[in-house]
Design a protein around this nucleic acid. Sequence first.
RNA 1: AGGCGCGUAGCUCAGUUGGUUAGAGCGCUUCCUUGACAUGGAAGAGGUCGGUGGUUCGAAUCCACUCGUGCCUACCA
Length: 957
Amino acid sequence: MEKTYNPQAIEDKWYQTWEKNGYFNAEQTVEGEESKEDGSRAERENFCIMIPPPNVTGRLHMGHAFQDTIMDAMIRYHRMKGENTLWQVGTDHAGIATQMVVERLINAEGKTRHDYGREKFTEKIWQWKEQSGNTITKQLRRMGASLDWSRERFTMDEGLSTAVTEVFVRLYEEGLIYRGKRLVNWDPVLHTAVSDLEVLSTEESGHMWHMRYPRSNGAGYVVVATTRPETLLGDCAVAINPSDERYSYLLGELLELPLTGRKIPVIADEHVDADFGSGCVKITPAHDFNDYLVWTRHKNKSEIRDLPRGGLINIFDHNAAIRDNEDDVNNIIPDAYIGMDRYAARKQIVADLEAAGLLEKVVDHKLVVPRGDRSNAVIEPYLTDQWYVKVGPLAKPAIEAVENGDIKFVPDNWKNTYFEWMNNIEDWCISRQIWWGHRIPAWYDELGNIYVGYDVDDVRKKNKLPDDFVLRQDEDVLDTWFSSALWPFSTLGWPEKTPELEKYYPTNVLVTGFDIIFFWVARMIMFGLKFMDDVPFREVYVHGLVRDSEGQKMSKSKGNVLDPIDIIDGIDLEALVDKRTSAVMQPHMVERIEKLTRKNFPDGIPAFGTDAMRFTFASLATTGRDVVFAPSRIEGYRNFCNKLWNATRYVLMQTEGKDTGLLTNGNDNTDVALSLADRWIISRLQHVEERIEQHNKNSRLDLIAQDLYAFVWEDYCDWYLELSKPILFNDATPENQQRGTRRTLVRVLETILRLNHPIIPFITEECWQYVAPLAGKTGDSIMIQPYPESDASKIDAKAEKELEWVKTFISGVRRIRSEMDIPPGKPLSLLLQNASDKDKLLYHENQAFIETLAKLAQSEWLDDDDEAPESATALVGEMKILIPLAGLIDKDAELARLEKEINKLQINVDKTTSKLLNKNFVDKAPAAVVDKERSRLAEMTKAVEQLEEQAAKIKKL
RNA sequence: AGGCGCGUAGCUCAGUUGGUUAGAGCGCUUCCUUGACAUGGAAGAGGUCGGUGGUUCGAAUCCACUCGUGCCUACCA
């Protein structure tokens, strides 16, 4: 094996090998598991995870890397457990995002998508997809993701498109999809409807205009306030609160709507808050969601019904400019404003009001502005024809599935978020006015009648329409989440009845961020229950959001994003600055981002390798909702990988070409003696295995990482490897003992590698290739080896206790050495006093361990009443370790040291004493707890006594 | 306004159904190139677990209130 750990040298190599050999694919078996006694294969559990499909033209960010690490660790674990695993891979077409990217490319040519036309433009997107589509898959491979590439899917591929059509047609036929004219969130830049979830509302400063609406009887005016004065053109009423007596006299009156020559009524509606503003609200039903609701409550009253368009007056075109009157009978829109952009119109209208003396005042006002998450344009409520899914009937069973435990959220309280949304759910607007996506399978005849079917021929057949009957397909496409919602079954071949569906649906766990519980999780549950009659997954594992080292959410616009590949391969500062600043649209941010980057990464990012990154993510996978990714953290786990690497090198040096307990026929040599250290590490290993199994059940990757880290570094490297040296470096050690230790070294290491493999696949594979044969393992890859399981018969409580004694002894000597400034290399002689027979036996049995690790020259036993020379003291239970001062040790320093230790103990002695004096405690606490306290107290009291005795002795000198 | 969460060592976080001497990584201090590893070894400092009150023999853990903080949802024109 190479002397230094170099992740670059091993990672690509192993990924290619794994993929080439088909280990990632479903149906892969674990070596040694295929043949049970009778030669048949045992019935296997299936374990399936669907990858949340990333945007096909995007790049993976740290959040994906985090998520993929979690999924891969789960999948590798279950694969090694012998289950039939499928990690379904694929991407989605990300309608608006992808269309925008390609439009930008076209804009650079000085053209728009309309210059290309729909067909040519979508061709262009397909080309772009081909060109950029493997960015994601390359990244996934670099991260070691063991995805089944043979089953890769794309939401726009033929099969998945078939599924989309099928779902649309069925829902339409059941009346669960309908077309309606409603207010939607309209993005006037992208010219499409967007869902509530795609609108981000932020507080911005603006103004509140107080406008005067004259009473038609000439007796003064009514003041209404608005943040959008241009919408006055679409007003249908002014509303007051029914119980607001200040204005009750106005009811039934008409007001002059300024600048329009129209008259509008005053109505009473509960929606109005009498205490806000003037208490009078203008009602613009075609441009405000609340006003629309007010209108629906009043639309049948004659004063509203008799207004143009029944009061529902649209004033904008699809650019949010003031529309033309062409299709109106009675010229609702004043000519002066036609064609003006909404903000130009606002300015003009305010000026005209002012000129007419109808502007009371303008005040600064903080308001919440809705913006499109893609375009950042201010969203307008806009009246359009759209397709909707009637969600109520679908939501009910979806809520029940979580209530009755068919689906479990992890951590559990995310279900509250889910219920919150599902209980207040509204119909889902699924049509988008863009070109990239699944075209809606609906056709119109010249009278506007709607026909829905699988394709145009189907429509003709079903409706007995002749071939020359003119039909025009709906121009719109479906929301991307519509196809994503089918992902858990469409990828498995639905609507065909495939063996895959039979096997893998419902999937086991969905791993996702809490930010898309609404977008995606809820919709998958609804559609899964509807079309598969079963939940899409049994468990939803919700992880946190990855933030930068300052706790900020990572985003391109903030310029604090990291590319997982740059963590793996490293990147120099200039390249990183370049990468971050070039992704930013607003030039004024560039400077700030550059400064931030130079501050946080003064030396760029070193190459940490995939394994170190993965271990870091694993350790960060706590139940919290924030995941703070600090470079120092990866460094620590890179060091862990290095530690494992070097431990392996040590083991190989001790075992390669030597007897590790294997006979030439491959069987175990039974003439093997195990040292205390051997028995101890084997016993400890069982505990770790058990804990890890428990953590896996609880999906606590962070705790797995923590246990693995501690076991490898502390138990195995710091103690066990050091304890193996006195045995192996001493030629006098009997052969069967050396054999025992070598065997334990390799076998425990081999197990450690398998335990770690799901988290750090590359380094474990590389090491395993060397270690496995020495441990008597055959097989081509660690990936398909069984995952270690705890064996209770190997737990050796006695060995654990005895080795604890040895450790205490060694640590005691080391502490004195360190605190007394005795060089670590200087061999010490010591005296042992107050020893029991047991102490003596333990010492003799473990003399080699103790003398080597504590660096001792010799030890001498004193009788209890022997006079000891002035010494520094440590305790092992009741036995005293005495290190004679003999010019080595400063008397005062030793006194101070003893005092400190006594004080520490005394505090606990006091605490425990008062506890035991409390009658209630002794009576009511479980006997075991009380006993424990009692023996603790005895131990500590004894220790204090001995230390005090020792202190007194030194003082006397 | 409603909902959810968080507040434990300088920093980032664990702490399973209330019962240890409250832990880890990074950082910090001292010493050490000992034949796996200086991406290392040994030893150590550092916390009244946000505050108050309660339940209990016993609270970081359960309850109430409170302060601070974050997110989500809905928002007053």
